[in-house]
Design a protein around this nucleic acid. Structure first.
Length: 745
DNA sequence: CGTACTAGTCTTTTT
DNA sequence: GACTAGTACG
C-alpha cells in the first residue's frame, strides 16, 4: 500500500508514526516535529490499521496543546476525527468523574477549588484543629498535602509515615480534616481530580474495564512532566492492551516542583520491557549555532538520556550576549532592539518573545515596551480568574450551581455589604458543623440558630435571592443569570460609583467574563453552568495566548515550553536569578540541573536569533543585588557568542569605574547607596547587609528555610565564610554565611 | 459592623 | 517594593 502522507516525515519520524501496537517511547528533542509525528500516527492508525477513532485517547498538559492537536487532527483526518478523545489530564479525569463520582460518595455536580479556595479551606481546618497558623502556615500544609497526593499517599498512610515527627503529625491531622471538609463541600482540588479517578478505577474494576475497552490506544504528550499519580492513571488505563505511546524529552522536564517524576520517562523501558524506543534528534526549528549552545549547556547535566540535536539548516547568527548596569537598561535595550528590527521590516512583533525566570521581572520590561510603543502581551502573572471581582462573580455562579460549596457561599454572603458580619457568620458555621450540614443549609434554617435573630431577615433575603437566581438560570441560561446577578447585587454599580483607580479595570474584567459566558453558551453543545465553571477552573495562563495577534510575547521560561519564535530574548541571565538562588543553595545538586533544563528549553525556543542579557545590579524583593553572569551563559562556548562573559566576577563588579557608573546610572529613585566595604565583603550577593557574623561554633541559629540548628563549623572561604550547621529537622548543611543569612537565637 | 492602618510575606516555576 | 491578611479602633 502507498501512504503518501508519510513521505513528508524523515525515517525516524516515519518509524514512530507507523509503530502502533505495544508500548512505544518517543524521545523527541526540542523542535524535532513530535506533534507532526503524533498527528501522522493517528492518521496511520485509522487509515491503515483500521483503528476506530473512538478507541484513541490523546492526553496533553495544557488546553492549548490539546486544542492545537484537535485542530490538526481534524484537518488531517476529517470524518470521524471528533470521536478521538483529545484532552488534558485534568479535563479527562473531570469528564470521567462527572459520570461516576457518585460511586465514591460525592455528588456529580462537584466544584473544583483553586489555590485560593484551598487556602480558605485550610485556614478553617487549622482553626478547628487548634493549629497556630503562625507556627505552621497554610501554604506549608497545603504543599505537603499536594506532594502527598502526587505520590498517591492518602491521609491514613500519611499519618502512619508521620509518627514520631510532631510537625508531620500535625499536617496529617490537617490532611484528614481537609479531605473531610472538601467532601462536605462537594469539592475537589486539582490533585483530587487525578487521585479520585485512580481511586474510582481501583475500587470499581467494572468502570475501569469500560474505559480500557474504550481507550485501546493511548498517547501521552510531554511525558517527562507526569507525576506518580498521572503515571499510575495511565498505567491503569493501558493495563489491558498495553498500546501506550508516550512522547517526551527528559531534557525538558521542568516541573519537579509540581511533582513531576523524571524517572517516569527515564525508566519507561524498565516498566515496559517490551517497549520500543525511538529517538528524534533532527531539529527543524533552530540554526546550528543555537542548537550547539543548547547542547553545550545541557551536556553538563548528569542523569539524562544521551542525545544531541542537529539541523541541516546552517550555522546562522551567533548568540548575542549583552551586559547592562541594571534591569532598566536591560529592558530599554530589549524593547528598543525589537522596535528597530521590526521597523526595518525584518521581523514582526509576533515573531519575538522575551523570556524570564520569574514573573516579577515582567514589570520593568512592560514599562519599556509601553515607552517605546511596542505592542506586547504578557502571559501569566495574575490569572484572570484569580482576580477579586472575577472570583466574586464566580462565587455567585458556584453558589447557584452547588450550594454546598461553603467557600463560595461564605465569600459572597456579605459582598456587596449586606450587614452580615463575622459574628453571625461564625455562629452559622458552628451550627452547620454541629449538625453536619452545609453552611447554606444552615442559612436556610437560620431562625433555629441561637444568637443570630437580628440577622434572620438579612439571611432570609440572601437565601431568597439565590433561589430566584436558580430559577432565572433555568429559564434564561447562564448569560441571563449573570446579568441578573450584576443587576440585583449592584456589584458593578458600586464599582462605578467608587473612586478607586482600578474600578474601571474591574468593570472591564467583569464585562470580559460575561463575554466568555456568551462564547461558551454559543460554542458548546451541551452547555451547563457546571460545564462553564469547570472550563474556567481548568484553564492555564498559556491557554489564552493568541499567537496571531501582532504582539511581542513576554512570559516565564516555564510558560514558553512548546512554543517557538524567530527572535528570543532571555532576560536576567544571572546567577541568583537564573539559576534561581533557591536552586543554587539547595543541598540537592539536581536543583540546578532542573534550572539547566529550563535554560535548554529557553534556548531551543529560538529559531533564528537568540539574545541573552544580564544586569550587574538588580532589585529583587526590595533589595539591590549584585549577581555574576549566569553559569549557563559560561557553559556556552565563546566562539558561539558575539561577546564574551566577564572572566571573573570581581573584574567587573568591583572596579572604581563600575562603582562610579552605577551611581550615575540610577538617578530614578532613592535606591540605596552602597559603600565599598559592603561590596568588597559580599561579592555577587545582596549588597547592603552587614556581613559580620554574630554567631560562633556551638550557637543556635535560625535559617529562613531550614529552620533552627546548631553551628558546628565556621571556616574561611574566598570573600566569605563557610558555615556548617546541623539543623533540627534537616540535618547537616554547609552554606556561605553571606547568603544563608543565619540569625542567632 | 466596617474602616484604616500595620506586619509579614513574597518571588521560582502552575494543572 | 508590592501585596495581603490580620488587628485595632471608631
Amino acid at each position: 500500500m502507498y501512504m503518501g502522507y508519510l513521505d513528508s516525515l524523515n525515517s525516524k519520524q516515519r518509524e514512530a508514526a507507523t509503530c502502533v501496537d505495544g508500548p512505544l517511547l518517543i524521545l523527541a528533542g526540542a523542535g524535532s516535529g513530535k506533534t507532526r509525528v503524533l498527528i501522522h500516527r493517528i492518521a496511520y492508525m485509522i487509515d491503515e490499521y483500521n483503528v476506530s477513532p473512538w478507541n484513541i485517547l490523546a492526553i496533553t498538559f495544557t488546553n492549548k496543546a490539546a486544542g492545537e492537536m484537535r485542530e490538526r487532527v481534524d484537518k488531517m483526518i476529517g470524518q470521524g476525527a471528533d470521536s478521538i478523545w483529545v484532552a488534558t489530564f485534568h479535563a479527562t479525569c473531570v469528564r470521567i468523574l462527572r459520570r461516576h463520582i457518585d460511586l465514591l460518595g460525592y455528588d456529580t455536580g462537584f466544584s473544583i477549588y483553586d489555590t485560593d479556595d484551598q487556602k480558605t479551606v485550610m485556614k478553617g481546618v487549622l482553626n478547628r484543629l487548634d493549629i497556630d497558623p503562625k507556627v505552621m502556615r497554610e501554604k506549608t500544609v497545603l504543599n505537603a498535602i499536594s506532594s502527598a497526593k502526587d505520590e498517591l499517599i492518602d491521609p491514613e498512610e500519611f499519618a502512619e509515615n508521620s509518627k514520631g515527627n510532631w510537625k508531620y503529625e500535625q499536617i496529617a491531622r490537617a490532611y484528614e480534616e481537609y479531605q473531610k471538609t472538601l467532601k462536605r463541600s462537594n469539592a475537589l482540588d486539582f490533585d483530587d481530580i487525578i487521585v479520585l479517578t485512580i481511586e474510582l478505577f481501583k475500587k470499581h474494576p467494572e468502570v475501569l474495564d469500560n474505559y480500557r475497552e474504550r481507550f485501546r490506544y493511548i498517547m501521552v504528550d510531554e511525558y517527562q512532566d507526569t507525576n506518580t499519580a498521572q503515571f499510575e492513571l495511565i498505567s491503569l488505563l493501558a493495563g489491558k492492551y498495553r498500546n501506550l505511546c508516550v512522547v517526551g524529552d527528559d531534557d525538558q522536564s521542568i516541573y519537579k516542583f509540581r511533582g513531576a517524576n523524571i524517572s517516569n520517562i527515564l525508566d519507561f523501558e524498565k516498566v515496559y520491557p517490551e517497549a520500543k524506543v525511538i529517538k528524534l534528534e533532527q531539529n527543524y526549528r533552530s540554526t546550528q549555532n543555537i542548537l550547539d549552545a543548547a547542547n553545550n549547556v545541557i551536556k553538563n547535566n548528569s542523569a539524562r538520556k544521551d542525545k544531541a540535536l542537529w539541523t541541516d539548516q546552517g550555522k546562522g547568527s551567533l548568540v548575542h550576549l549583552r551586559q547592562f548596569d541594571n534591569a532598566y537598561e536591560e529592558a530599554d535595550f530589549i524593547a528598543g532592539d525589537i522596535r528597530s528590527v521590526c521597523r526595518k521590516g525584518e521581523y514582526d512583533y509576533r515573531q519575538c518573545a522575551v523570556l524570564y525566570r520569574t514573573n516579577a521581572q515582567s514589570r520593568i520590561l512592560e514599562e519599556a515596551f509601553v515607552r517605546d510603543g511596542v505592542t506586547y502581551d504578557i502571559v501569566g502573572g495574575v490569572n484572570f480568574y484569580a482576580r477579586k471581582e472575577i472570583k466574586d462573580m464566580l462565587a455567585y455562579l458556584k453558589t447557584v450551581d452547588n450550594a454546598v460549596d461553603d467557600v463560595a457561599v461564605k465569600r459572597i454572603i456579605n459582598i456587596p455589604r449586606r450587614g452580615i458580619g463575622a459574628t453571625t457568620i461564625n455562629k452559622i458555621s458552628d451550627y452547620a458543623a454541629d449538625n453536619d450540614i452545609s453552611f447554606y443549609d444552615a442559612l436556610c434554617r437560620c431562625e433555629e440558630i441561637p444568637g443570630v435573630q437580628k440577622a434572620v431577615k438579612k439571611l432570609d433575603s440572601f437565601v431568597n435571592m439565590i433561589r430566584v437566581f436558580r430559577s432565572k438560570l433555568e429559564v434564561y441560561g447562564i448569560k441571563g443569570l449573570i446579568d441578573d446577578i450584576i443587576e440585583t447585587t449592584g456589584y458593578v454599580e458600586e464599582l462605578r460609583l467608587s473612586d478607586e483607580d482600578d474600578s474601571v479595570d474591574r468593570i472591564e474584567n467583569i464585562d470580559e467574563l460575561v463575554t466568555k459566558i456568551v462564547n461558551y453558551e454559543e460554542n458548546t453543545e451541551e452547555n451547563s453552568l457546571s460545564g462553564f465553571l469547570e472550563e474556567v477552573a481548568l484553564v492555564a495562563d498559556i491557554d489564552g495566548v493568541d499567537s496571531d495577534a501582532n504582539k511581542v510575547l513576554l512570559m516565564t521560561l516555564h510558560a514558553a515550553k512548546g512554543l517557538e519564535f524567530d527572535r528570543v530574548y532571555i532576560a536576567g541571565c544571572e546567577d541568583g536569578v537564573f539559576p534561581s538562588s533557591m536552586a543554587i543553595f539547595d543541598e540537592d545538586p539536581t536543583a540546578v540541573e532542573e534550572e539547566r533544563r529550563l535554560a535548554y528549553v529557553g534556548i531551543t525556543r529560538a529559531k533564528k536569533e537568540l539574545t541573552l542579557t544580564y544586569a550587574k545590579q538588580r532589585m529583587l524583593r526590595g533589595e539591590t543585588q549584585y549577581n555574576a553572569v549566569s553559569r549557563f551563559v559560561k557553559e556556552i562556548p565563546v566562539e558561539l557568542m558575539d561577546n564574551r562573559p566577564p572572566k571573573a566576577r570581581t573584574e567587573n563588579f568591583f572596579s572604581d569605574d563600575y562603582i562610579e557608573k552605577r551611581e550615575e546610572s540610577t538617578p530614578t529613585t532613592g535606591r540605596k547607596k552602597i559603600s565599598f566595604l559592603d561590596l568588597d565583603s559580599r561579592p555577587g550577593s545582596k549588597a547592603p547587609i552587614a556581613t559580620k557574623i554574630d554567631y560562633v561554633v556551638g550557637d543556635r541559629v535560625k535559617h529562613m528555610k531550614f529552620g533552627e540548628g546548631v553551628v558546628t563549623k565556621i571556616e574561611d572561604a574566598p570573600k566569605d565564610k563557610k558555615v556548617t550547621v546541623i539543623f533540627d529537622e534537616l540535618g547537616q548543611k554547609v552554606m556561605y554565611a553571606g547568603f544563608a543569612r543565619l540569625t542567632k537565637v
